[in-house]
């Protein structure tokens, strides 16, 4: 397996977005691309990342291989890459180590690292294509701000989606608060738009702590899509652009 990405910053941001949720993960390499699925230790949330082969500058994978990686170790290695460096990842069939090569844009600096891989026996969940009752698209900076603002008030947030608005409500020890967003009527910048697609109104409760973990993915995408159905896990998607892939989080709801 060998693959090269023009910008190391993409992998750095992906790692920042998952390393507080997951400690070890298998990076699954196949001819289709690079993917990862992992749950947090309490099995309340799941992260699913896909980087399509066509999004890489070069991608070669003769046989599917899983690279078991400790994310804290990978973070240490990626700290040595400049944001604008290209990154080449290599692994052989034995799968006991992975090689990372960082090259500066001017090609006058080349650094190489080798990472020992681990055997990770991870449980994979089959996540079927789901038709959600409510889909909300909003700026990822707005999502991050709401989670961080409401997170200081309480532990859970009630998300209510109607045709007219999406409302985030918190009820905590010191009092309560809410933020309500209405779909944008004037579209100045596509990245500032709030869009709601509704089959039926949804009203659900989630842990703010996890929503805040997911907000770490905001630097990956200008917009975020929240998909909800009654008594079903919330899906939060950050797309890296149409061709590249996505980072999705799933969060089990709090129910009676």
């Amino acid at each position: 397996f060998e693959a090269r990405l023009t910008q190391a910053s993409l992998i750095k941001k992906i790692l920042e977005a998952i390393k507080d949720l997951v400690t070890d993960a298998n990076f699954d390499c196949s001819p289709e691309g690079l993917s990862l699925q992992a749950m947090d230790s309490s099995h309340v949330s799941l992260v699913s990342m896909v980087l399509h082969a066509q999004g890489f500058e070069m991608f070669r994978c003769q046989r599917a291989v899983s690279l078991g990686i400790n994310l804290a170790s990978l973070t240490k290695i990626l700290k040595c890459a400049g944001n604008d460096d290209s990154i080449t990842l290599r692994a052989d069939e034995k799968g006991d180590k992975a090689e990372f090569v960082f090259e500066s844009q001017s090609q006058d600096r080349l650094s190489e690292f080798e990472l020992k891989l681990m055997d990770i026996d991870s449980e994979h969940l089959g996540i079927p294509d789901t038709k959600y009752s409510a889909i909300v698209e909003m700026p990822s900076s707005e999502y991050r701000r709401i989670c961080s603002d409401l997170g200081v008030m309480g532990d859970t947030v009630r998300i209510s989606v109607s045709k007219e608005s999406v409302k985030f409500q918190v009820d905590g020890d010191i009092g309560k608060g809410s933020v309500c967003l209405h779909p944008s009527s004037v579209v100045d910048k596509p990245t500032e738009v709030v869009k709601i697609s509704l089959e039926e109104p949804v009203d659900m409760i989630f842990s703010i702590r996890y929503l805040n973990y997911f907000a770490k993915a905001a630097p990956l995408s200008d917009t975020v899509t929240l998909s909800l159905s009654k008594d079903f896990p919330l899906q939060i998607e950050f797309k890296f652009g149409e061709q590249m892939g996505y980072l999705r989080y799933y969060l089990a709801p709090k129910i009676d």
């Binding site: 099995h43 994979h124 079903f232 896990p233 799933y250 709090k254 129910i255």
Partner: peptide, 14 residues
């Protein structure tokens, strides 16, 4: 009172 469910309740493992 609400309680936190886990994902296995909704998705099959394989």
């Amino acid at each position: 009172n609400k309680h936190q469910t886990t994902l296995e309740k909704y998705y099959d493992g394989h």
